[in-house]
Structures are given as structure tokens and as C-alpha cells.
Design a protein around this nucleic acid. Structure first.
Lengths: 198, 198
DNA sequence: TAAAAAATAGGACAAATGACCTAATATTTG
DNA sequence: CAAATATTAGGTCATTTGTCCTATTTTTTA
């Protein structure tokens, strides 16, 4: 079989296991078993655990980048793009209830491990943060764009964590509705600049 | 030395290490070294790793319970109690920036591990959730009390996660301000029931 | 088709770890 | 004080894991 095909299958399996079980809790043998290859073959493609982690992070970055840029290329307006981002929580609700957020949980683990991969995990946050900031700027929130981006990012993280802790509730759906309502209020803000002062 | 004193020191050390490094990444040897005792002595007090985890979770539950009930016993009004809860993010900002939320990060890890201790970790969430719900009920939000409790819990989680990823920002302080403003709006809601409809 | 290269399989090994045991020391008790 | 009990120290052991190596099989190349 072509090396690149096996390599790709390893990355896909490792990506899933790192998400479901965590990075440190996933062994070479675990990944090899899922792919259906020997540990020796695994080592032929990736010389260390850090190397497979890097490959997974690159894959995720590319995947998320394509998703975000895809919405823009489809010509969707900025507000709709942000709404799409919020909607990810619903699209992936099953996995989120079972394993939390792929970005947040992996970052947290690598951070506690003191692992160099913490940087790549932060890059994933950066990707979403910068993209959201640009969308808010297009919505006219030039001054607060980054603050709004961080806000929606934080709420997504919190919702994912609690949905993981309480999977049997309709909590996730309700919070998404609130976030979309919040987005409406934000997008109205530049149309109705006269806000009620505190 | 009295056994209870050594036992207590072990729990304190394990609590700290489970927070800073994670449960799975902390070994018996790590805890014993911090306490300054031998691994054999450690095993005299706790027969397994699950046992020390249980002790740590009990300790945390007791500690948080006392904190929350303490505010009530001081006679603080419901809204001030919730504000105190939000303020924890500032009180512990240094540790949160370095290690995230002790409750959320440990729950996430135990969940991915498939460890039975996931239940006790969820109990910690339950403690805050139920307490917050009661405070919101006292504030007159009888119908939405649980939803509001979950909301503030989720936002705390998200803020802690992102403050961990971006420790150098003033993001944490800004989000706390927003949460307190949100609390004001909620507490005003029953005084001014006529809200502007969308 | 024969030689060379690529890919795979499976075993070896040192380090780390949870668990367990026994001997030594400190403390309490009668 | 002496016996009994509680506490501590340190070693052993089986298992897991990341890493590495060599032999075998498959694919490509000339």
C-alpha cells in the first residue's frame, strides 16, 4: 500500500483517539490496533509520539481552516458566518456530549503535561479567534472585535464542558439559542448606536 | 507523627498535583516526594490511587461546601452570593491562568479516562449548580433558576479555559465585569418585568 | 524477470508505575 | 519499663509504554 495512505489512516485514528481518550492515555499500540497495523509499521511512519501529535495538529488546523474559509468563499455574510460557528455546537452535539470540545480538552491536557504541543493547540484557538475577530470587524464592531471573538469562544468552551458533564439535558440547545440571540443584539448595535446607558 | 496529620498532608499535596499536572500524570512517587515521605508510607495511608482520588474529591467537596454555605451564614443576600461566586475567577486568577479550573479540568480528564471518579467530579459541579439555583430562586427567578445556574457555570468554565490559553491578556477581568453586569440585568428583571420585546 | 527499494511485522529493551511485602522505628498502652 | 500497636522506609514485582532493531514481505524499477 502507498505510504501516504497508511500515514493518513494513522493520523485519522490518532486524531479520534486523542479526542476520545486523550493524548497521554493513548498508546502506540492503541492507534496501531485501530488502524490494523503492527507497532513496528507505525514506527516506520512516525518516529516518535510527538511526531504523530504534530501531524494530528497540522491536520486539524488545515481542516478547520478549510471549514472557516469555505463559508466565506460561499459568500456568506459575516453575521451568518459567526452563526455557523456557533452552530458547530449543535452539529457535533453527540461527540461534544461524549468528549467535550476537541480543541479545548486537548489544549488543557497538553498544558498540564507541560508538552511542547501546547503551542500548536493554542494555534487552533488563534485560528478561530482571528477568524471571528475579522467577522466582527466586517460587522462594524471595529473596536470590540477581538473582545467579542474571545467572548464567543469562551462561551463555546464553557457550553462544551458542561454539556460533557450533563449530557442528558437540553442545556446545549438552549445555550446555542442564547448565543444566537446575543449575536443578534451585537449585530443590531451598529444599526442602533444609541444604547441605554447604565 | 499522628496518622491523620500525614494523611492530611498527602491529601493536600495530591490535590495540588492533580490540579497542576492532572490525575493520570501524577504518580505515587510524585506525591510522596512533595510530602517528604516514602512510597511505602504512602501506601500505608492509601491502598490505591483511586482511594487517594476519592479522598481528594471528598476534601474538595467539603471545602467548596463550606465556602458557599459560609457566605450564606454571613447573611449575604442572594445576589451578592452569586457575585461572590463570579469573583472566584479573580481571586484565583493566578492559578486559573496557569492551570485552568480545578473542577472542570479534572472532570474532563476523568471523563476521558473512563475513570469512576468522574462521578465525584460531577458532584462538584452539582454542588455549585444546586447552590446557584437556590440563590436565583431567592432572587425571584423561580422558573429559570436552573437555567441561570447552568449559564453562569458554563461561562465560568469557558472563561477559565481561555484564560488558561491566553494568560497574558486582561480578558479574565473583562469577562468577570460582563458576568456581573449580566447578574445586574437578571436581578433587575423581576423588579422591571416589562422588557423590550425583540 | 531479477535487483533494489519501500513497507510491514514482530520482538527486544529500558524506564516508569501501581501494587504489594517485610523489616525497622516510633508511639502508645498496660 | 516492656509488650503491643502504629507508623515509616525501602525493596520487589508484574505490567505498560515509548523507542529501537532486524527479518520478512510487498512493490517498484531497470
Amino acid at each position: 500500500m502507498a505510504a501516504s495512505a497508511t500515514r493518513e489512516k494513522i493520523i485519522v485514528a490518532a486524531d479520534r483517539l486523542f479526542y476520545e481518550r486523550g493524548f497521554d492515555m493513548t498508546s502506540f499500540a492503541d492507534v496501531a490496533e485501530v488502524v490494523g497495523i503492527s507497532r513496528g509499521n507505525f514506527y516506520y511512519h512516525f518516529k516518535s509520539k510527538d511526531e504523530i501529535l504534530n501531524a494530528v495538529m497540522e491536520s486539524r488546523l488545515k481542516d478547520r481552516h478549510q471549514m472557516l474559509e469555505g463559508w466565506i468563499k460561499e459568500g456568506q455574510p459575516a453575521k451568518q458566518c459567526v452563526a455557523n460557528f456557533i452552530h458547530i455546537l449543535l452539529t457535533n452535539r453527540k461527540k461534544i456530549r461524549a468528549y467535550g470540545c476537541p480543541v479545548g480538552t486537548l489544549f488543557t491536557e497538553l498544558s498540564k503535561l507541560g508538552h511542547p504541543g501546547e503551542e500548536s493547540a493554542r494555534h487552533l484557538f488563534d485560528l478561530f479567534r482571528n477568524w471571528l475577530r475579522q467577522r466582527f470587524m466586517e460587522m462594524g464592531q471595529t473596536k470590540d472585535a477581538d473582545r467579542l471573538a474571545m467572548h464567543i469562544l469562551a462561551r463555546s468552551q464553557g457550553v462544551a464542558t458542561l454539556a460533557n458533564a450533563y449530557p442528558d439535558e437540553q442545556f446545549l440547545e438552549a445555550e446555542v439559542d442564547q448565543m444566537l440571540a446575543w449575536l443578534d443584539a451585537v449585530s443590531d448595535a451598529d444599526i442602533k448606536p444609541t444604547q441605554r446607558s447604565s
